[in-house]
């Protein structure tokens, strides 16, 4: 159910991106700040994975941890 809702939202985003009036407003040459390593969601993957493991072993909640969303393609 949750995935269906998430998929609907994403399809909505796709539909929105098809509108000619809506154009990308941050150009590739304007992404220097986003490419800075301090803007990475998790800069050390092994370390972040370990911390997720620490929490998942001691809490009932699991899933949707950091890193599943991919990068920003701004390098």
């Amino acid at each position: 159910m949750l995935l269906k809702r998430a998929l609907s939202i994403i399809i909505f985003f796709f539909a929105l991106s098809g509108c000619k009036s809506l154009q990308p407003w941050v150009k590739p040459h304007q992404r220097g700040i986003l490419a800075d390593s301090i803007m990475a969601f998790d800069v050390d993957p092994a370390s972040a994975k370990y911390m997720n493991h620490v929490y998942e072993a001691r809490e009932a909640a699991r899933g949707a941890e950091s890193g599943a969303g991919g990068g920003c393609g701004c390098n």
């Binding site: 995935l3 998430a6 941050v26 941890e65 599943a68």
Partner: peptide, 17 residues
């Protein structure tokens, strides 16, 4: 499923289900 969105030159957001 996940979506990462650049919102401004200084702001990025990520949604994961």
């Amino acid at each position: 499923i996940g979506l990462t969105q650049v919102l401004t030159r200084k702001w990025i957001v990520n949604v994961v289900a």
